[in-house]
């Protein structure tokens, strides 16, 4: 019982826990908006892990180049903030590009050769993860520290915490904004309309003359880029360095969230918060009571099973109740 209370309320017991929950939810939001985007366009992006991880590595590397460090020092010592902002923007653009490229490749393979993006995106990701692991542990490692990580980025590049001492920063609001913009794009623009129609009704879309192949590529690329955004903010807002195993399942969680949200980017916002809450709750429960890590995983699984099964069951219940009332 005690463990259960810890489980449900743990994340709200302190600013530290609550802030970190929001931070985690923000990162998940970026990535699951990406996953939802691919699903909407009728594709499955299973390469989220590498898209996040690679973008995070790119961000960390750009921001620890000597010229970036110099620009940060200039900004930190009261000089012009211009160069530092330039590197910050450059890192963001390259992170988007890295994620986008990893989405574009399976998208293009599907459009051109009909290769299943399910397989290609997964395989590309699976092949890339150990390469990135190696780069972090080897050539790109910060030799001065005892961690399997790249050098930490300078203070000037770090996003300020809005709920100290937690990690929560402005990226949470940017994530909510991104999900909202994605939802508006899908429901309120012609391009978004065509993307959704091509996703649900591919033959009809082709018949109506929509550029179905280009839509496939665009959907996968946008999905990759949004995962890249998660990688970028994981560095500048949360960890400040790219450590081994940084993505650690975030890509898969994002996919689960997008499915729970039924591919709707707006629903991704509450779904990410819920997911982050359950994850933080189980982490805290493990720390504060003698609950084993595996049993929390089971609790998580059961909760998500109920969430995803909830809607059809609710529908049936409603039908049964209605019939009762009618009689």
């Amino acid at each position: 019982m005690n463990a259960f209370a810890e489980f449900a309320l743990g994340p709200f017991s302190s600013l530290w826990h609550a802030g970190n929950l929001l931070d985690k939810a923000g990162l998940l939001m970026f990535a699951s908006t990406g996953a939802a985007f691919a699903l909407k366009s009728g594709t499955f992006n299973l390469g989220g892990e590498a898209q996040i991880y690679a973008s995070a590595l790119v961000t960390a590397m750009i921001l620890s180049t000597p010229s970036a460090v110099a620009a940060a020092e200039l900004a930190g010592s009261g000089g012009s903030a211009g160069p530092a902002l330039f590197f910050f923007a450059l890192a963001c653009a390259l992170a988007l590009a890295a994620g986008g490229l990893l989405g574009f490749i399976p998208g293009e393979l599907k459009a051109r050769f009909g290769a299943s993006e399910l397989l290609t995106s997964f395989l590309l990701s699976a092949a890339l993860l150990p390469v990135i692991d190696f780069l972090i542990a080897g050539p790109l490692r910060d030799e001065g520290k005892n961690l399997l990580a790249t050098p930490a980025i300078a203070d000037a590049f770090r996003m300020r915490s809005l709920l100290p001492p937690s990690l929560m920063n402005a990226s949470f609001f940017l994530a909510c904004g991104t999900a909202t913009v994605a939802a508006l794009f899908l429901s309120r623009t012609r391009a978004g309309y065509r993307l959704s129609v091509a996703g649900t009704a591919p033959e009809f879309a082709r018949f109506a003359g929509f550029p179905v192949k280009r839509i496939t590529v665009a959907g996968m690329t946008a999905s990759g880029a949004l995962h890249g955004l998660a990688g970028f903010f994981a560095i500048v807002g949360t960890w400040f360095m790219c450590h081994q195993g940084l993505s650690s399942g975030m890509g898969w969680s994002a996919l689960a969230i997008a499915l729970i949200a039924r591919h709707n980017p707006l629903a991704v916002i509450p779904a990410s918060l819920l997911y982050a809450w359950i994850e933080s709750a189980s982490d805290i429960a493990v720390l504060s009571s003698r609950v084993s890590f595996d049993s929390t995983a089971i609790v998580q699984g059961v909760i998500f099973l109920f969430i995803s099964a909830k809607l059809p069951i609710a529908g049936q219940l409603r039908a049964v109740l209605k019939k009762r009332r009618a009689r």
Binding site: R188, T189, R190, Y193, R194, A201, A208
Partner: peptide, 25 residues
Amino acid sequence: TWRGSNPELAIGHMLCAYRMPRFIS
């Protein structure tokens, strides 16, 4: 059923295939 339309599409979306404005108010 599947080419001229699609069972999963909303009637409005099916009818406006060629007429969706760039921005949908």
